[in-house]
């Protein structure tokens, strides 16, 4: 078992209800548990399925079992399926050393659709995120997923991207195996492509 670069390794996976971040965190948790680490995946859902923010916390350690909530402002990385959610979560888990990996595709809150609130311009949002983390990966995950024919694959694209960073003690092969435990083989070809696209995105970044 490879030593953890960060122990505990605390990864926040966030997005909007329906984007598949709970699934992404489960896949990650399963891959890390299979690799022999202590894993706790905390999920918050309920009303959030109806358009609210949904956050999972993937906590990995070599030692004692960790609780389902990580301490504030100590996340190793924030993986976000929606860029505004990344900024929201930096307000809770961010610190100067945090790594942020986010999809660049906005999903506008109801108040913005109604014309009552504003969604920041992409450039402003990106610059703000950059100013609040050690390294920002601003990735076209939804665009990459749409190239594969389905926007819902953005979560797997981001998992692929995460595997391309030097944060996890496991690689894309282990994440792919965990996906294989949760999906029928018929869906795996697309999942493999999505992982590969994520890896390529982060290498090009």
């Amino acid at each position: 078992m490879k030593a953890l670069k960060y122990d505990p390794l605390d990864i926040v996976v966030t997005g909007v209800g329906g984007q598949g971040n709970v699934l992404a965190s489960q896949v990650l948790g399963l891959a890390l548990l299979t690799a022999g680490y202590e894993v706790t995946v905390g999920e918050t859902y309920g009303l959030s399925q109806r358009g609210g923010s949904v956050t999972s916390q993937v906590r990995v350690s070599s030692g004692p079992v960790l609780g389902p909530m990580m301490p504030d402002h100590r996340a190793t990385a924030i993986v976000s399926l929606e860029p505004l959610e990344a900024l929201r979560l930096l307000g809770v888990y961010g610190h100067p050393g945090v790594v942020v990996l986010t999809n660049d595709r906005p999903l506008r809150p109801l108040g913005v659709l109604a014309g009552e609130q504003l969604y920041p311009e992409p450039a402003e949002l990106r610059a703000t995120l950059e100013s609040l983390c050690a390294k920002l990966y601003w990735l076209p995950a939804t665009a990459a997923a749409l190239e594969l024919g389905n926007h819902i694959l953005a979560n797997v694209v981001l998992l692929g991207a995460l595997c391309g960073l030097d944060l996890l003690p496991i690689g894309a092969a282990e994440v792919e195996a965990a996906l294989g435990d949760m999906f029928p083989e018929s869906k795996m070809a697309l999942n493999r492509e999505a992982l590969a696209k994520g890896l390529a995105l982060v290498r090009a970044a």
Binding site: V16, G51, L87, G91, P109, L110, G111, E124, T128, L132
Partner: peptide, 10 residues
Amino acid sequence: AQALVAPRQV
């Protein structure tokens, strides 16, 4: 920075 973040009403 949270001033930029609109609440996500359900």
